[in-house]
């Protein structure tokens, strides 16, 4: 992957496939680190499955849907001295708070840090393709914060789908404006 924002898009697709209807994408930056957390309320994974998804060579046919996404994110984190952690609960383990949280820690000043790239395009792509899912996007930097809440947008938009072209343009412009001040 050329940009971390593509890894983030890819990992969030796992949450889509897990049947989540609410996905939090949270980026937190300090001067030295970037933490990426993708948290969903989808079907979750068993502890055995969580172990398997970290290993690209251990995928059987039934686990193929996970494939290389997690290993690629892990590679990108580890090559900066960071790592990836996955917490997950299936609906059987916890009927109320089930889902998966994938977190990656990256050291930004390491020479092998992959640039974050274009998060605006990642967010727009996710909303374009999944208008029925709610996304809570937060990117905190030392200079300030960028936020987008589709729940809040939905309250204003009513029955108008989130992937209406004018709405996607509004999201792109809104995030672009917010990013100019951080």
């Amino acid at each position: 992957m050329k940009e971390l924002s593509l890894n983030i898009l890819d990992i969030t697709e796992n949450s889509v496939k897990a049947g989540a209807d609410l996905i939090h994408i949270t980026l937190t930056e300090t001067d030295e680190t970037l933490t990426v957390a993708i948290e969903d309320n989808g079907c979750g994974m068993t502890p055995e499955f969580v172990e398997q998804v970290k290993d690209p060579f251990c995928t059987s046919r039934t686990t193929r849907k996970v494939g290389l996404g997690i290993p690629l994110l892990t590679l990108a984190a580890r090559q900066t001295g960071g790592d990836v952690a996955i917490e997950s609960k299936t609906a059987e383990m916890d009927p109320v708070h089930h889902g998966t949280k994938t977190s990656g820690l990256f050291y930004k000043n390491h020479i092998d840090f992959t640039p974050l790239g274009n998060m605006i395009e990642t967010v727009c792509t996710l909303i374009q393709c999944n208008p029925h899912i709610d996304f809570e996007y937060t990117h905190t930097t030392p200079k300030g914060e960028v936020r987008l809440s589709t729940k809040q947008m939905r309250e204003v938009l009513g029955e108008v789908p989130l992937n209406t072209y004018e709405v996607i343009v509004w999201i792109r412009d809104d995030l672009t404006e917010q990013y100019q001040s951080v």
Partner: peptide, 11 residues
């Protein structure tokens, strides 16, 4: 941040 009023106009 862009205004939510613009979203209402789109609606």
């Amino acid at each position: 941040m862009k205004s939510l009023a613009e979203l209402a106009a789109i609606r």
